[in-house]
C-alpha cells in the first residue's frame, strides 16, 4: 500500500517519462520558434552582400561577411544619435511617468483626500472614451506646438489610467494604513509620508510600472511617425522604418563625410539594414531576462488578485 502511494505520489509530481519527453519537445520547439527569427536576422546581417543577392536569405550562407557592421560603425554617428534619442526619451519619459503616476495614484488611494472620487473618475473616464488619433494629433501639434521636439515623444506616453489603477490597488494592498497613521501621529506631513514611507514600501509596484513604461518608450515608433521630421530627433525604431525605403538615411545624416562616391556605391545595403535591426534589438535581448518576473507581475499585481 505504501508503495502504491509512493508511486502515485510520483505520478502527481511527474508525468510519465515518455509524456515528459513529448512535452519537453513541444515546449522546446515553441520556444525556439520564438527566438529563431532573431537568430535568422543575425545570420542575414553577417552574410556577404553579393551572396545575398544571388542566394537570398540563407540559414547557412555561402559566404560570411562583417561588411555591414563595418559600414554601420563607419557612419556610426547616425546610429549613435538615434540611440541617444531613444535612451534620453526612455529615461526622461520613464521618470516623468513614474512621478506623475505615483503621485496621482497615491492621492486617490488616500481616504482622507476629499476629492478622491472626482479624480478617480477623472482618470477612469479616459479609459472608456478617447478622442482618437486625429484630435490628439491636433492638440499635440497645433495647440501645444510639440511637433519636432522630444516632448512629442515623451508626453503622449507619460500617463495611462490603467497604470494608475494598478498602482492604486498596489498601495492599498501593500501599504498598511496603520503605518501611515503612525507617521501622521509623529507629525509628518502628507508629502513626507509619501516620500519616506509609502514609496519605499511600494518599490516592487513602481518597478513594474516603470519597466512597462521603459519598454513602451523604447519600442515606440508611432509618435515619431506622427510628430518627428527632423532627422536629428529620430529614435531607433523610427530610424529602422526610414532605412526600410532607403539606407541612405544613415549616410545622409552622418557627420563622417569621408565616405567617397565609390564607397557609397559599395554600401552593403540589405545586410546593413539587418545589422541595424540587430543593433537596435541587442539591448533588449540582454536586459529582458533579468526583468522577466516584473512583467509577469504586471497583470497580476493590480488587475487580478489571487
Amino acid at each position: 500500500m505504501a508503495e502504491v502511494i509512493q508511486r502515485k505520489k510520483r505520478d502527481f509530481h511527474h508525468v510519465s517519462r515518455g509524456a515528459n519527453a513529448v512535452l519537453h519537445t513541444i515546449a522546446a520547439i515553441f520556444s525556439f520558434l520564438c527566438v529563431f527569427p532573431f537568430l535568422f536576422v543575425v545570420i542575414i546581417s553577417l552574410t556577404d552582400e553579393k551572396t545575398l543577392a544571388t542566394d537570398g536569405y540563407r540559414l547557412i550562407p555561402a559566404k560570411w561577411s562583417l561588411e555591414a557592421y563595418k559600414f554601420v560603425f563607419q557612419s556610426g554617428d547616425t546610429l549613435l544619435r538615434s540611440y541617444g534619442v531613444t535612451i534620453l526619451v526612455t529615461v526622461v519619459g520613464t521618470l516623468v511617468s513614474l512621478i506623475l503616476i505615483s503621485l496621482y495614484a497615491y492621492a486617490i488611494s488616500r481616504k482622507s483626500f476629499r476629492y478622491r472620487r472626482f479624480f478617480s473618475v477623472f482618470a477612469i473616464l479616459t479609459m472608456l472614451f478617447n478622442g482618437g488619433m486625429i484630435p490628439t494629433y491636433m492638440v499635440v501639434s497645433q495647440l501645444l506646438g510639440l511637433k519636432d521636439t522630444l516632448w512629442a515623444l515623451i508626453l503622449p506616453l507619460a500617463m495611462n489610467a490603467f497604470y494608475i489603477m494598478i498602482l492604486r490597488t498596489f498601495y492599498s494592498t501593500s501599504v498598511p494604513e496603520a503605518i501611515i497613521e503612525s507617521g501622521r501621529i509623529d507629525g509628518a506631513g502628507d508629502f513626507y509620508i509619501f516620500l519616506r514611507i509609502v514609496l519605499p514600501l511600494s518599490l516592487p509596484g513602481l518597478a513594474t510600472i516603470g519597466l512597462f513604461s521603459t519598454l513602451g518608450y523604447w519600442n515606440d515608433w508611432f509618435n515619431a511617425l506622427l510628430y518627428i521630421d527632423n532627422p536629428n530627433l529620430v529614435p531607433l525604431q523610427s530610424m529602422l522604418m526610414r532605412i526600410e525605403s532607403s539606407i541612405q538615411f544613415i549616410q545622409q545624416n552622418s557627420a563622417n563625410s569621408s565616405l567617397s562616391m565609390a564607397a557609397l556605391q559599395s554600401i552593403p545595403q540589405d545586410t546593413s539594414r539587418m545589422a541595424m535591426v540587430v543593433l537596435a534589438t541587442l539591448p533588449i535581448i540582454f536586459a529582458y531576462p533579468f526583468f522577466q518576473r516584473y512583467f509577469v507581475q504586471g497583470l497580476t499585481v493590480g488587475a487580478v488578485k489571487e
Binding site: F119, P135, L143
Partner: peptide, 23 residues
C-alpha cells in the same frame, strides 16, 4: 498637498485626453 499631487496628472489628462475629446 493632495491636490498638488494630482495636479500634474490631471493637467496631463486634460490636455491629452479631454481636449482631444472636445476636438
Amino acid at each position: 498637498v493632495m491636490l498638488f499631487m494630482v495636479l500634474p496628472g490631471a493637467i496631463w489628462f486634460f490636455f491629452f485626453s479631454y481636449l482631444p475629446l472636445v476636438g
